[in-house]
């Protein structure tokens, strides 16, 4: 096994361990959530007998380790349990929601990559110039204004009485209407992208500035290379590595961190589902949605680390 292969194996194993830890946390948290599941399913006025029956059906009278074991094995065979609230298989509720969030996240991610990185590079090259100052000022504002405020502003300006350009809420599947899908997904994804663009832009800028001041860039310039080659070949490649890993992390948080934006735009994604599940004490749904979000996070972390190690030949392949 090569050094990189070994690193990959150790790092993946470690991610699996973390995920396992996450299942424990999720399971534990749902156990100590206040409220009794049976009452949640049947409402407050039920007989002892009814509770017994429900507990029996949901497997809640078994010992905890057994419940945990059943839950875990269920995840792997696709039996994710029944939603308390909808009385439907959790799988059928959570997966479509997750996919919708993924669409949102991907569009936002594309925006982040296409706007944040190039602007960051430009700001670094023209450091201290007019362009740089404006870009920095704008990113400061983007970072300070909460996403939901932007969202509401967008709705106010573009989704309402001022200009009716986009619908302000809901979701249309692309199979129904591509333009409808795009219209519904654009505002929330732009809103999502804004803050992240600011982050990515700042990171790209500062890393590239550091690289442009490094000794090996000096070496490159003192070889007589023109500024374009110096930038593209010698600086960008190293300067962009931290950004690439940051992007991977951002994708992870886009997949899970959209609660507020989904809420503002009434977008039926995993974020709103999770909040709903918390409010309704819909434990099976809550468990799975959190687990999926955390998995997206952990996998994004894994990708970020592995990419970093892969891209930067200097890194020693340490343990996890």
């Amino acid at each position: 096994m090569g050094k990189f292969g070994r690193y990959l194996a150790i790092r993946s194993l470690y991610s699996i361990l973390i995920l396992w830890g996450v299942t424990l946390v999720v399971f534990g948290v749902t156990q100590i959530l206040p409220g009794d599941p049976a009452t949640m399913v049947l409402g407050p006025y039920v007989s002892e007998q009814g509770i017994e029956l429900v507990n029996e059906r949901l497997g809640l009278n078994k010992p905890l380790p057994v419940q945990y074991f059943d839950w875990i094995t269920g995840i792997f065979v696709g039996d994710w349990g029944l939603s308390f609230q909808y009385e439907q298989p959790v799988y059928d509720i959570v997966v479509p929601r997750m996919l919708r969030t993924a669409q949102l996240a991907l569009v936002a991610f594309l925006l982040v990559v296409c706007i944040g990185v190039p602007l960051g590079v430009v700001a670094a090259i023209y450091r201290g110039s007019y362009v740089d100052t404006v870009v920095s000022a704008v990113t400061y504002v983007w970072l300070a204004v909460p996403g939901y405020v932007f969202g509401i502003l967008f709705i106010l300006l573009l989704g309402g009485p001022v200009f009716y350009l986009f619908p302000s809420s809901g979701y249309v599947a692309p199979s129904e209407s591509i333009s409808g899908w795009f219209g519904h997904i654009l505002l929330p994804s732009v809103t999502l992208a804004l803050m992240m663009v600011a982050h990515v832009l700042r990171q790209t800028r500062s890393e590239l500035i550091d690289t442009l001041q490094s000794e090996y860039v000096r070496t490159a310039r003192l070889k007589g290379l023109d500024e374009r080659t110096v930038l593209v070949k010698h600086a960008l490649r190293n300067g962009i590595i931290p950004t690439v890993t940051l992007l991977a992390l951002k994708l992870g948080s886009l997949l899970g961190g959209t609660v507020l934006i989904e809420y503002v735009f009434s977008y039926p994604g995993i974020g709103t589902l999770t909040v709903e599940a918390i409010h309704n004490r819909d434990l099976p749904v809550l468990q799975m949605s959190i687990l999926l979000i955390a998995a997206a996070y952990v996998i994004a972390n894994l990708i970020a680390d592995v990419l970093y190690t892969y891209l930067d030949p200097r890194i020693e392949y340490g343990g996890a």
Partner: peptide, 8 residues
């Protein structure tokens, strides 16, 4: 704990 998004 870093496996969860902050808000979540």
């Amino acid at each position: 704990f870093l496996a969860f998004p902050s808000l979540l």
